[in-house]
Amino acid sequence: MLLEVKDLQISYGNKITVDSASFSLEKGEILSIVGESGSGKTTVIRALMGCLPGNGHVSSGDILFEGCSVVNNTADDWRKMCGEEMSMIFQDSGNMINPIRKVGQQFTDYIMAHKPQTSKNDAYKMAVTMLADVRLPNPDNIMNSYPFELSGGMRQRVGIAMAMVFHPKILLADEPTSALDVTTQAQIIRQIVDVRNEFNAAVIIVTHNLGVASYMSNKIIVMKNGHIVESGSREEVIGKPQHSYTKELLAAVPVVGGKRYYE
């Protein structure tokens, strides 16, 4: 078992936000988390990375990574794990990277911050290889660009390249395609699946798009109001939903050519 989450409770201050969350993940599996806005999806995956914002903390339960509990990790332990054991991409990775520094500088700095023994030259080569790996054309050009010169899809690929450079075992993705149009979304989803195949990494993806969840996942978790209300294989959750909230979500997916709102 790569990751095991047992009866996890997460609180901001003394307010419980997520309660009794349990799930597990094997190598190479893709798990989607779908559900209500504000139900705690981001909170869960941030807890897995030890990067809850503000006064967020795990208030009970356990997270086991390769059999070892990580809930009592020190900041230093997390720093070592982030990027190398697991890493994260966001809705707009382009916003995460500094807008006024070139992609290349940021990428090589990131590599050298994690692996100080790496020479600048080697870091540059690693970065270019990774950019080519995520199908970015002219990686040297990309290295020499400012983030705002890249499209949303390209920035998201840069985000994936940075996240995967140390071949982490888990890639966490928080709504990685919510800002993209459907063609770019399809490219990025395919890229994430490729990353899974190439590095045998496990993936946890938070998405509001049930089509995306249905397309790529082995397992799906449905969250509502801080609780996991349903979880199972893709076939179970999409094909034979049990909980009324799962059914409600599936029924609300807008379909091209479907029933119009104003008729």
């Binding site: 499209s151 459907v182 063609t183 770019t184 399809a186 049930l210 089509g211 249905s214 397309y215």
Partner: peptide, 24 residues
């Protein structure tokens, strides 16, 4: 191309989406 890239909830296993290549 937009229409071909929409993820449907009820896609059949093995069915592939067809994203257009290249960047804007």
């Amino acid at each position: 191309a937009l229409l071909q890239a929409v993820f449907k909830v009820d896609f059949k296993p093995g069915e592939k989406i067809q994203p257009i290549e290249g960047e804007v």
